[in-house]
Amino acid sequence: MNIIYTERLCLKEASEKDSLALFNIWSNPEITKFMNIEPMINQNQATEMIQFFESLSKKRQGNRFSILLNKSTELIGSCGFNYLDYENDRGEIGYELDIEYWNMGYMTEALTKLIDLGFSSYNLNRIEAKVEPKNEASKHILKKIGFKEEGLLRKFEKAKGTYIDLIMFSVLKEDVI
Results as ranks from 00 to 15, higher is better:
residue 3 I to H: 05
residue 4 I to S: 02
residue 4 I to N: 01
residue 6 T to I: 05
residue 7 E to I: 07
residue 7 E to H: 04
residue 9 L to M: 01
residue 12 K to H: 13
residue 17 K to A: 09
residue 22 L to P: 04
residue 26 W to K: 09
residue 30 E to G: 07
residue 30 E to R: 13
residue 32 T to W: 02
residue 35 M to D: 06
residue 36 N to M: 12
residue 38 E to R: 08
residue 41 I to P: 00
residue 42 N to K: 10
residue 42 N to E: 14
residue 44 N to P: 00
residue 44 N to Q: 14
residue 49 M to D: 15
residue 51 Q to C: 15
residue 52 F to K: 09
residue 53 F to I: 00
residue 56 L to H: 12
residue 58 K to E: 13
residue 58 K to A: 12
residue 59 K to P: 00
residue 59 K to V: 00
residue 60 R to N: 15
residue 61 Q to F: 04
residue 62 G to M: 11
residue 65 F to E: 08
residue 67 I to R: 13
residue 67 I to N: 13
residue 68 L to N: 06
residue 70 N to P: 00
residue 73 T to L: 12
residue 74 E to M: 06
residue 76 I to V: 10
residue 80 G to K: 04
residue 81 F to D: 04
residue 81 F to L: 07
residue 82 N to I: 05
residue 82 N to C: 11
residue 85 D to I: 08
residue 86 Y to G: 03
residue 89 D to Y: 14
residue 91 G to W: 02
residue 92 E to A: 08
residue 94 G to F: 02
residue 95 Y to G: 03
residue 99 I to M: 09
residue 101 Y to E: 11
residue 101 Y to L: 05
residue 103 N to D: 14
residue 103 N to R: 14
residue 107 M to W: 03
residue 109 E to V: 06
residue 109 E to Q: 03
residue 110 A to T: 11
residue 110 A to F: 03
residue 110 A to R: 06
residue 111 L to T: 00
residue 112 T to F: 01
residue 113 K to I: 07
residue 114 L to W: 03
residue 115 I to E: 02
residue 115 I to A: 07
residue 117 L to G: 00
residue 118 G to T: 01
residue 119 F to L: 04
residue 122 Y to G: 00
residue 124 L to A: 11
residue 127 I to F: 11
residue 129 A to M: 04
residue 131 V to N: 07
residue 137 A to K: 14
residue 138 S to C: 12
residue 138 S to Q: 13
residue 141 I to T: 14
residue 142 L to P: 14
residue 142 L to N: 14
residue 142 L to A: 13
residue 143 K to P: 04
residue 143 K to T: 11
residue 146 G to M: 12
residue 146 G to Y: 10
residue 148 K to E: 11
residue 154 R to V: 06
residue 154 R to M: 07
residue 156 F to I: 00
residue 157 E to S: 03
residue 160 K to I: 05
residue 162 T to Q: 15
residue 162 T to H: 13
residue 164 I to N: 08
residue 165 D to A: 07
residue 166 L to V: 05
residue 167 I to W: 09
residue 168 M to Y: 00
residue 172 L to D: 07
residue 173 K to I: 00
residue 175 D to H: 04
residue 175 D to T: 07
residue 177 I to G: 03
residue 177 I to C: 08
